[in-house]
Nucleic acid binder design. Structure first.
Lengths: 195, 195
DNA sequence: CATTAACTTGACACCGTGTCAATTGACATG
DNA sequence: CATGTCAATTGACACGGTGTCAAGTTAATG
């Protein structure tokens, strides 16, 4: 459970990311991760107490790699509410495919594992704040449709942008990433802008 | 594996429904179902070869109880496209909370179990047909926004109405069923109607 | 009375997670 | 050089859940 970055710890995380990304759907077992990292299964437990902990660490790991914070925060600099809404959808929507594998694993554990649920909920809470900020920006511009309170609008935007929705459109229905982004931006405008 | 309705088969299905409905989130084990049905665990396997098969049978069972077909088909009688859209959202949206428990169980098995995935996909396909019919009705009325092809609009409506979205709004965000239905109807209008 | 079908009990195999103990090998420090 | 320590290894094992198998019980039916 070394808290620092050790050589093997990184090997493990790297292997975990790779497996989650490639083996879409199929289970990713501790054994698989170990083999792929070139170490023994037991050595995993020297670094991560449980599978859940490993998965959570993996999300942090990729977030660092992707500089997620930075990219998501960028939308905050947009001038108008509409631009901000667009920028947030663009940023978050581009983030999804890069974390989809890991998110899926975490999501699957959510129901059975306390720690995984917590990690996931924190993430969703962060995302919701981004939505809230975008909606508030609309509100300040007086461009938010009077049909919605900011809270309601936030809930809806947050739901629209869920990873599961991305999954339905881009995986199940085969939409391209470009089509997804364009459609979601346009949908959000239709939904939230005062006409 | 008796294909007919036997006494105990129904007891099992009833127990299964009850457990899935009440024990939200917690696992529902074969043992639990057996105990709750008042029979031995092994007797379950006399009626259903696998857990997946039992769950699938359970969905059919509740569908029969709820007369889902009938209720969902009702929207087809609406006159205008808009009414039809509303009616479908009303029907499907009211159906969700009643099958939420079972759906969750099936959804969770989707990734690991072939049969469960198939059962789920069939269901989603049916639902998509309902969406398609509503969108086509709009199209025929020339009230579908030119921004969308019927296919795109169908995909989006289908996504909007996903059980996971209902879950996010009604479970996670605590929306009432009434609020959910109203908001989804209004959202769909904003999204799909030509302005 | 004998047969048959539905159930029961109890044991067991398989898998995946997590634990434990004993061992090895590298490397640092006195 | 001896010692200790740290990371990793091997191998065994417990636990929980699904699914299988075999033998025995019970009740209905001819």
């Amino acid at each position: 459970m070394s808290s620092k970055n050790s050589e093997t710890r990184n090997k493990i995380l790297k292997a975990c990311v790779h497996l989650l990304e490639t083996s879409q759907g199929k289970e990713v077992r501790m054994t698989d991760i170990a083999r792929h990292a070139g170490i023994s299964r037991q050595a995993l437990y020297l670094h991560f107490a449980t599978r859940a902990e490993l998965l959570i660490a993996t999300t942090h790991y990729v977030d660092e790699l992707l500089e997620s914070e930075k990219r998501l925060a960028a939308s905050r600099t947009a001038e108008t509410g509409i631009q901000r809404l667009d920028a947030y959808i663009e940023a978050w929507g581009s983030y999804i495919p890069e974390v989809y594998g890991i998110a899926g694993a975490l999501l699957a554990m959510k129901d059975t594992d306390e720690a995984a649920a917590k990690a996931w909920n924190e993430r969703m809470e962060d995302m919701r704040e981004g939505c809230e900020a975008a909606i508030n920006a609309l509100q300040n511009d007086k461009t938010l449709s009077p049909a919605y309170s900011p809270d309601e609008a936030t809930d809806i935007l947050w739901t629209m942008l869920s990873i599961r929705n991305w999954e339905l459109l881009c995986i199940e229905r085969g939409w391209s990433q470009k089509k997804y982004l364009e459609n979601l931006k346009s949908l959000a405008r239709r939904a939230f802008l005062a006409s």
